[in-house]
Nucleic acid binder design. Sequence first.
DNA 1: GTCTATACAACGATAGAC
DNA 2: GTCTATCGTTGTATAGAC
Lengths: 208, 208
Amino acid sequence: MALEGTRQTRPRGRRRAGENTRAALLDAARVEFTERGFDGATVRGIAQRAGMDPAMVNHWFGGKDGLFVAALQLPVDPEDIIRRVLDGEPSQIAERVLRTFLSVWDTNGGGAFTALVRSVASHEGAARMMREFVSRMIFGRIVSVVAPDRPELRTALCGTQIAGLAMVRYVIRLEPLASADHDTVVAAIAPNLQRYLTGELTTGSATC
Amino acid sequence: MALEGTRQTRPRGRRRAGENTRAALLDAARVEFTERGFDGATVRGIAQRAGMDPAMVNHWFGGKDGLFVAALQLPVDPEDIIRRVLDGEPSQIAERVLRTFLSVWDTNGGGAFTALVRSVASHEGAARMMREFVSRMIFGRIVSVVAPDRPELRTALCGTQIAGLAMVRYVIRLEPLASADHDTVVAAIAPNLQRYLTGELTTGSATC
DNA sequence: GTCTATACAACGATAGAC
DNA sequence: GTCTATCGTTGTATAGAC
């Protein structure tokens, strides 16, 4: 007799239209990632919670990483950002990072990113996902290429400058930064961000 | 005959204990400051909403500024911060600012400030109050003393670094910054903050 | 009939138990 | 050192939508 309560098998083949397995997978992933973190959550567990096969994660999101990024609901494609940042002069990485973020944020008036900041600030689970995302997928990869030492500290420091810019420019909307054009923002902030990326961390560099 | 509907007079003398005029004044002030901003809100309007005399604002909070700061529910006394920062070597202002914030934040585990960040991120009214508070009372007064040029821009830039540090260290809790001791944080961030306060803004200063 | 969303089985890696 | 369990991932057969 079949164990109907703990069924392990589902009928093969395509579901009826409207079942939307992709969305179900995303919902399950958000629950698992926020509760257990990236490492603690398993593809198999997420798939089971969504009631489908683990292979669906690969089919729809290309793997665990892709599912995680999609679950974060980022208004950007981090792979695109990394690509746009990593090619070019290392001494101008900060400028490219800033220009990339500014162009992405300003295309939709910062609305999507404001929502992201809100959710990160209010939900502990969202904060946890953002924490692991930043340390694992963004600055970790960038800094490991260009940083001379202490990549984790540099990653976190870069996070302070980027998050602070987002807070002041888009959430608090403090002038003149809120309406400043990209060149002004870059000229003001890029040197500081560059110090976090490639500069000397123990001694000051502001006063030569 | 008295206009009972729009009464302008209240019985003189001390109210009965437990009426808690101070709290009523704070509630009214939050509504007015949130809806109209610092300039738009009037002491008379706030007092009227609270159903008492405008002189109570002076008695309880020492003036409009004091009421505004109290309405923000800051876990700090900004006057104390300004005082501790302004006396000493100008080239080490950034370090004193950072040490002051760190000591205040870390005394209660960042809990009160985390709540502040949450409310600023989620409530537009709180964001507005924070915006006006920062530009008017904190960095505006500090920067006007030590900054060579563009005080508003420097104020906003300092805001990015402080807000970003708060986000990363206390809200997102990204390591190693979340558990770093004060000396490490100061050594890493003070040079950048110092550049925002007194450095050159148009050209880079990270690479000497 | 074609396309594709789906389930199943299996593979290599890794970590922990004994 | 070996054994086992579990993980992420891949290849393939199939069932249903179009």
